[in-house]
Amino acid sequence: MAKGEETRQFIIEKAAPIFNTKGIAATSMSDIMEATKLSKGSMYVHFENKEVLACAAVEHNMKMLNERLQRTLSQYTTSKEQLFAYIDFFSDPNHPPVVGGCPLLNFGTEADDTNPVVKEKVNRAIQQSQLLLSGMIEKGISNKEFKADWNSADFATALFAMLEGGHLMARMSGNNDRMQVIGNTLKKIIEENSI
Rank of each mutant, 00 (worst) to 15 (best):
M1K: 04
A2K: 13
K3Y: 09
G4P: 04
E5N: 09
Q9H: 08
F10D: 05
I11H: 07
P17T: 01
I18M: 12
K22N: 09
G23D: 06
I24P: 03
I24V: 15
A25N: 07
A26D: 15
T27E: 09
M29H: 00
S30H: 06
S30P: 02
E34T: 12
A35G: 04
A35D: 11
T36S: 10
L38H: 08
L38G: 08
G41C: 04
S42H: 05
Y44K: 08
H46W: 04
E51C: 02
C55A: 13
A56T: 01
N61G: 05
M62D: 09
K63F: 00
M64D: 11
Q70F: 13
T72N: 14
L73G: 09
S74F: 03
Q75T: 15
T77K: 15
S79W: 02
S79F: 06
K80C: 09
E81Y: 07
E81N: 13
F84V: 15
F84T: 05
Y86L: 07
D88C: 02
P93R: 08
N94H: 04
H95N: 15
V99K: 10
P103W: 05
P103V: 01
F107M: 10
T109H: 08
D113Q: 15
N115C: 00
V118W: 04
K121N: 00
V122F: 13
V122M: 13
N123M: 01
N123S: 06
A125Q: 12
I126M: 11
I126D: 09
Q128M: 06
L131M: 11
L133W: 14
I137M: 04
I137T: 05
I141W: 07
K144P: 09
E145G: 06
F146S: 06
A153G: 08
D154W: 13
F160S: 12
L163N: 14
L163S: 01
H167D: 12
A170H: 03
R171L: 06
S173I: 02
G174E: 06
N175Q: 14
N176I: 00
N184M: 02
I189Y: 15
E192H: 08
E192F: 06
